[in-house]
């Protein structure tokens, strides 16, 4: 089963997503797909903090900053996976470490997400709803927003359950939340 969560920041998406993936896993392997690629000490500190906060939750961490479906090469596809977040994954695909920029990253990331959802038994996806402000952005940011919307809409189409999280409350647009 695949579940998609989105919503504004600090609304409780990650907490609900963790509960959901644990409920889906039962006693089967539980994987956390870590998307952050550290570039400096600040990033490394943030990662250590995230690792510590997951300590004792039973997750096996898979580091996969790009080409997300490749994480299945070293995991049991019959396990349950938490991908938090689609937003970070797309940033890695679009804004390259050498300063380069790939305007087609959205199509590539959407295809990888589709493959992950198809091959793994259970995947819970977390994304960010960044589409409802009045900001007038530069073309890079606008391309990124359009690309993230492509990923989100791809996932919303193929996932069994689609949920917007509002102040920790789930609003179910499709399917049933398995909690």
């Amino acid at each position: 089963m695949n579940v998609f969560f989105s919503g504004g920041c600090k609304n409780g998406k990650s907490t609900l997503a963790e509960r959901t993936v644990k409920a889906l896993a039962g006693g089967d392997p539980l994987y956390y797909i870590a998307t952050m690629i550290p570039h400096d000490e600040e990033d490394r500190i943030r990662i250590r903090r995230h690792v510590a906060s997951r300590d004792g939750m039973g997750f096996i961490t898979l580091e996969q900053g790009t080409d997300v479906a490749r994480c299945l090469d070293r995991a049991d596809p019959q396990g349950s996976f938490l991908l938090d977040s689609v937003t970070a994954l797309l940033s890695n695909e679009m804004f390259l470490p050498d300063g380069g920029y790939d305007p087609d990253a959205g199509e590539r990331a959407a295809a990888e997400l589709r493959e992950l959802a198809a091959r793994a038994k259970n995947v819970v996806f977390v994304s960010d709803f960044i589409y409802a402000d009045s900001g007038l952005y530069d073309s890079y940011t606008e391309t990124y927003r359009r690309a993230l919307a492509l990923c989100d809409r791809t996932l919303a189409e193929i996932c069994d359950t689609v949920v917007e999280v509002v102040s920790t409350n789930p609003v179910v647009y499709k399917g049933v939340l398995p909690l």
Binding site: Y131, A132, D133, S134, G135
Partner: peptide, 19 residues
């Protein structure tokens, strides 16, 4: 119509009035 209402209040008066 696009929902343009969930960001920070714009500093620019025209943008603010528009929203």
């Amino acid at each position: 119509g696009d929902d343009i209402f969930c960001g920070v209040v714009p500093i620019d008066v025209t943008e603010r009035t528009w929203r």
